[in-house]
C-alpha cells in the first residue's frame, strides 16, 4: 500500500508499556490525527515512526518498504515539534534552507525556494528575522515552512499548535489544513485537542493507555465514539443512558442507541423546544448564556441560551435538542 503502515508496534520503558500493539494505516496524501490525552503514548508512537525511538516489537513501513531499521535522517520524514525548535543561531531563511542545504541544493535555487515557502505559510519578507524576534505563531509557521522544504514523504507533527493561544490555534489549524492539502503532503499529527484534530485531519485515531481504541475517517469517529471515555475525549460532556436516553430517543429518530452522548451545545433554550427544564444556574459566556438545567427524567444537564435572554435560577425553560451535537454510543456500562 502507498503511504504509512504501522504494524503491531510496542515500546516499553523499564518494563512499563508506553505503546502497545499499535497498528495504523495512513494512505498517501491524507492527514491522520492521533488524538489522546497527555501520557497516552502518542508522542512515543510519533518518535517510533520518526526513527528516534527503536520499537521493542512491530514494524513501520512506508510505500511498502520496511523502514524500522533506517535512521531518522534517511527516512525522508520531517518532524515538527510543539515549540517549533527553530535553530536559534540561524535566521529564518537559514532555518528554512536547512534541509535544502543538507540535500546539496544549488545555492542559487535555495533563496527563491525559501521565499516561496515563506509566502506559502504567510510570512513573506521575514527571511532575515531571528527566531527569537518571532511570535509563537510565527515560529510555528517557520517550522512548518522548514519541514515542508524537506519535501518529506511524510510530515510528522507533535502537538503543532498546543503552545499557542485559542484564537491563533483555530486560525493556524485551518491554515495548516489548507497548506497540507495544497502541497499534497502526507502528514501525521498527534494532539490532545479534538478541535485541532477535526480541523486538520482526514482521519482520526483515538489513543489511550498506549493503545489505539478507535480509528477511521474523521467524521465517522466524531459521530460514533467507540465508548464513553472516547466520547468524553472527543468533547461530549454528558452521557445518558436508562431513562434519560429513553426520553431523548424519540427526538432523535431511528438509529439512536441505548446510550446517548451530548456535546455542550446539544440543548438550546427555544420556545418550541420539546423538553422542560428548571434553571439551576446561569453564566454569560462568549457565545451566549450557559445554563445548568434540571430536566425531568434526565437530570442536570448543560444548555445554552441566546445572548440577551434574561434567566435566573428557578426559571422554567423549554429546551430543544440539536441532533447534530449528539452521538449514539454502543452498549456498555454507564457512569463516570
Amino acid at each position: 500500500m502507498d503511504g504509512l503502515v504501522v504494524a503491531g508496534v510496542g515500546v516499553s520503558f523499564d518494563g512499563d508499556p508506553a505503546v502497545q500493539d499499535v497498528t495504523l494505516e495512513l494512505p498517501a496524501g491524507q492527514v491522520l490525527a492521533v488524538l489522546g490525552p497527555s501520557g497516552c503514548g502518542k508522542s512515543t508512537l510519533l518518535r517510533v515512526i520518526a526513527g528516534l525511538q527503536v520499537p521493542d516489537r512491530g514494524t513501520v513501513s512506508f510505500d511498502g518498504a520496511d523502514v524500522t531499521g533506517i535512521p531518522t535522517h534517511k527516512r525522508g520524514f520531517a518532524l515538527m515539534f510543539q515549540d517549533g525548535q527553530l535553530f536559534a543561531h540561524l535566521d529564518v531563511a537559514a532555518n528554512v534552507a536547512y534541509p535544502l542545504r543538507r540535500k546539496r541544493v544549488a545555492r542559487a535555487k535555495i533563496a527563491p525556494r525559501v521565499t516561496e515557502l515563506l509566502n506559502l505559510v504567510g510570512l513573506p519578507g521575514m527571511e532575515e528575522r531571528g527566531p527569537a524576534s518571532l511570535s509563537g505563531g510565527q515560529q510555528q509557521r517557520v517550522a512548518l515552512a522548514r519541514a515542508l522544504a524537506a519535501e518529506p514523504r511524510l510530515l510528522l507533527l507533535d502537538e503543532p499548535l498546543s503552545a499557542l493561544d485559542r484564537a491563533l490555534r483555530d486560525r493556524l489549524a485551518t491554515d495548516l489544513r489548507e497548506i497540507l492539502v495544497c502541497t499534497g503532503t502526507t502528514a501525521l499529527l498527534v494532539t490532545h485537542d479534538h478541535d485541532e484534530a477535526l480541523t486538520a485531519a482526514d482521519r482520526i485515531a483515538v489513543m489511550r493507555d498506549g493503545r489505539i481504541v478507535q480509528q477511521g475517517p474523521a467524521a465517522d469517529v466524531w459521530q460514533h465514539p467507540v465508548d464513553e471515555r472516547a466520547a468524553q475525549f472527543l468533547g461530549f460532556s454528558t452521557i445518558l443512558d436508562g431513562s434519560g436516553a429513553d426520553r431523548l430517543r424519540p427526538l432523535l429518530g431511528a438509529g439512536a442507541g441505548r446510550r446517548i452522548a451530548l456535546r455542550p451545545g446539544a440543548l438550546r433554550v427555544d420556545p418550541r423546544g420539546e423538553l422542560i427544564g428548571t434553571v439551576r444556574s446561569a453564566a454569560t459566556v462568549a457565545d451566549g448564556i450557559r445554563l445548568r438545567c434540571e430536566v425531568e427524567a434526565i437530570g442536570e444537564v448543560q444548555a445554552y441560551a441566546e445572548t440577551g435572554t434574561t434567566l435566573a435560577p428557578g426559571d422554567r425553560v423549554q429546551l430543544r435538542l440539536v441532533p447534530a451535537a449528539t452521538a449514539a454510543l454502543p452498549e456498555g456500562p454507564a457512569g463516570r
Binding site: H73, R75, A78, P99, R102, A150
Partner: peptide, 15 residues
Amino acid sequence: RAEESAAALGASPWQ
C-alpha cells in the same frame, strides 16, 4: 529535540 528536528530534516549525525 533540536538535534532530532535536524535529523528528521535529513542531517546525518555528523551534520
